[in-house]
Computed example of a mutant assay.
Amino acid sequence: MGRVTERTRIRTVRVREGTLYAGRKSDHVAVEEPLDIRLNGQQLSLTMRTPGHDVELIHGFLHGEGLIAHREDITEARYCDGAVVEDDSGFARNTYNVMDFTTTRPQLLPLATKNFTTTSACGVCGSESIDAVRQKSRYTLMQNWSLDPRVILGAARALSAEQTVFARTGGVHAAALVDLEGNLLVVREDVGRHNAVDKVIGWALLEDRLPVRDTFLLVSSRASFEITQKAYMAGIPLLACVSAASSLAVDTAEEFGMTLVGFTRASEDGDGRMNLYTHPDRLDLRDVAG
């Protein structure tokens, strides 16, 4: 398996009191490598990701695309040999950058012939419309619970402490599934925000936890359409993001009945703030002052 971080030599430039300084130092950067995803031997997608938890990533990706519903839909997941041939020796070596998933239904393959590339910056996984996403999902979103906003802020503080790769590099996103008491059930990091979400949803699928109706999804990035889509496909009723929400994410969450929270900013002293975009009933605001 490839490394998650690498060391590189950089030049530093600083200005102090109007004087320019320059130097050299060693720095950590987040690793970004391609992952060639194959389904029943046929290439399905090429995504740029941080190595690690690839099996979870692909399970989450396939679930978000509506191609699988249960972990039993996959009979085998393996890294392919001979992804790269050594120039000097001529011997094939496993780069751990090609994975082939075999499904229990071989007839699935003709339905998944669209070949597309996703970068670490975008992850709209071939979905053509909100209606198409709704047709793929097997779940409805639970409406029978409400959450103290302070639970979300506490989870955001806890997520910051768990972002070990970000602490070293400043170059990855994080996603977490959080229960209604604020406990982080799983945390994953990746250069792609959609990959981090795929990894946590893939974890839930492999743990037989889908639909995860009694949790919320917390992401360290902005909320975009594809993240809202993936949360809906997994039956997650509430999505909280540290940054902004896009207009299509707001429209999608509104139509799906999902609570969307943005600019979730938690301070160390226990205070914090957030913006509530859609379906406020899942937040318990009875103790609001003023």
Results as ranks from 00 to 15, higher is better:
168 R>E: 15
168 R>W: 11
168 R>A: 15
168 R>M: 14
169 T>P: 08
169 T>Y: 10
170 G>N: 06
170 G>H: 10
171 G>K: 11
171 G>C: 13
172 V>C: 10
172 V>Y: 09
173 H>W: 12
173 H>C: 15
174 A>T: 09
174 A>S: 15
174 A>M: 06
175 A>D: 05
175 A>W: 01
176 A>D: 13
177 L>P: 06
177 L>F: 02
178 V>F: 00
178 V>T: 00
179 D>C: 03
180 L>M: 02
180 L>V: 02
183 N>L: 07
183 N>D: 06
183 N>C: 07
185 L>S: 08
185 L>H: 00
186 V>S: 00
187 V>C: 01
187 V>P: 02
188 R>K: 12
188 R>W: 00
190 D>C: 04
190 D>R: 04
190 D>Q: 04
192 G>P: 05
192 G>T: 03
194 H>A: 09
195 N>S: 14
196 A>T: 12
198 D>M: 14
198 D>S: 12
199 K>G: 11
199 K>E: 14
199 K>T: 13
200 V>N: 09
200 V>K: 13
202 G>A: 12
205 L>Q: 13
206 L>E: 14
208 D>N: 14
208 D>R: 12
209 R>G: 10
209 R>W: 04
210 L>P: 01
210 L>M: 06
211 P>N: 04
212 V>P: 00
212 V>W: 09
213 R>N: 12
214 D>L: 05
215 T>G: 01
216 F>E: 05
220 S>E: 04
220 S>K: 05
221 S>D: 15
221 S>Q: 03
221 S>R: 03
222 R>H: 08
222 R>E: 05
222 R>Y: 03
222 R>C: 04
222 R>P: 00
223 A>E: 03
224 S>A: 14
224 S>M: 07
225 F>G: 03
226 E>D: 14
227 I>W: 03
228 T>F: 07
228 T>N: 00
229 Q>W: 11
229 Q>E: 14
229 Q>H: 15
230 K>I: 06
230 K>P: 02
230 K>R: 15
231 A>I: 10
